[in-house]
Design a binder for these strands. Structure first.
Lengths: 224, 224
DNA sequence: ACAAAACAAATCATATACAATATATAATTT
DNA sequence: AAATTATATATTGTATATGATTTGTTTTGT
């Protein structure tokens, strides 16, 4: 299992033990190896990941900050319920923040930015033809991040990104329902068009329904 | 300084050392004892709070989760900048979430809830006459919490409450500008009226301007 | 049957040693 | 002189061992 830990974050910046443990735990929780409700006992995790107490405790604190686990003083940590209510709540928050960020970004977007968005969209469509889910998620993130960074609100971006990790992991587990992949292409094009036209009302509509559709699709996928 | 730690959270549920350290650090940061940008060295904190490494590291992780400090691997933790940009960003997020929660709560609110809101509002007005700032902040929190809990979105509520701690601490430092206290009374009454009338459009307007005014007032207070 | 005491399990905390990393400064090379 | 390379030091990060505290359960006494 130590090998597994060392394989984590190969592409990445961080290298501390607690960050590796955090990534492992996140993966193991979202892959349902640690099902919701499971107690995460420190002694167990020490054996499982072959590390000492401290990095585990720090990783647990970080995951609590992300809302993935709950720590009760003197009782311990357990995996939080990732039920439909939770997903629904998260998507509702995302929607209002994403619509806000999208509209804010419209105030600052340049033609050059729009060009970049079109390019990212092209890459997404290429990946979708190949059904390369991981690449699609990446392009999708890039599309939205490019847009949202223009809004110049790091705190909002941070919330979105924190939730994105969760959502993406759930997507990898549950996949997409119906022909969501094609729908996303259409919806992104609608957003791009509204931005190109600098039409605020149209953009709000497009961004809102994009978020609502994403929510409905994941919830449907979770039901099956 | 150990005495100081033990005095913290006297009224409270938690009792772990790391939670005390967390509260101390939060207080010391928001009181500007640790100014923005200050490096928080573990060795220093060990001496200062007279505790060992582990509770300090856990407290730091928690505060990073709250966004109050930033931890860079192998470099250390430092106090984040609580400048006007940050406050502005936070208030923008709060506004859209609070408006959302307010409108959601309207769907579920009962006459009994409305009665309770009126009572809380009365208490706020009493406290405002006495200029009891701490009590006012408490009533204000209760007013909004009562309302938001109806919206049935724990995750959104969590974000609001996390930010409220920050905002309240800043309020205690900077106080209120002008006759904000009286303005809040009027704005709350407007919100209450819109709820009583179950007028969604009116409520959205009232909630929005309440948030915008709160933001403008704190920013003004920070400038002086 | 029920309260009190004993026990077990887990978290929480301390102390210490050591490893890994960052940073600043000095020495060396080009 | 500039760039690279060594060196020294401070700090973070990790491991290990041990004890304290809390919580939950079981046993015991009446």
């Amino acid at each position: 299992m130590k090998e597994f830990i060392n394989r984590v974050q190969q592409d990445g910046k961080v290298d501390t033990t607690y960050s590796k443990v955090r990534e492992c735990l996140r993966r193991d929780i979202l892959s349902n190896y640690f099902a919701p409700g499971t107690r995460l006992k420190i002694a167990e995790l020490i054996k499982l990941y072959n590390v000492s107490q401290m990095p585990i405790r720090e990783a647990l604190q970080q995951l609590q900050g992300e809302g993935l686990i709950i720590i009760e003083p003197h009782k311990g940590a357990y995996v939080r319920e990732l039920d439909e209510k939770f997903v629904s709540n998260i998507y509702d928050i995302r929607r209002i923040i994403e619509v806000f960020l999208t509209l804010e970004s419209l105030k600052k977007v340049t033609d050059r930015d729009i060009k970049k968005l079109f390019q990212t969209q092209k890459n997404y469509e290429k990946a979708s033809v190949k059904r390369d889910v991981e690449s699609m998620l990446k392009c999708n993130s890039q599309f939205h991040t490019t847009l949202y960074q223009l809004a110049d609100n790091d705190e909002a971006l941070h919330i979105i990104e924190k939730h994105s990790q969760l959502i993406n992991s759930l997507r990898l587990s549950y996949g997409f329902e119906g022909n969501r992949v094609e729908e996303v292409i259409v919806e992104h094009r609608e957003i791009l068009e509204a931005i190109s036209l600098r039409d605020e009302k149209l953009l709000e509509k497009a961004a809102t329904s994009h978020c609502l559709n994403a929510k409905a699709n994941l919830l449907a996928a979770m039901k099956n």
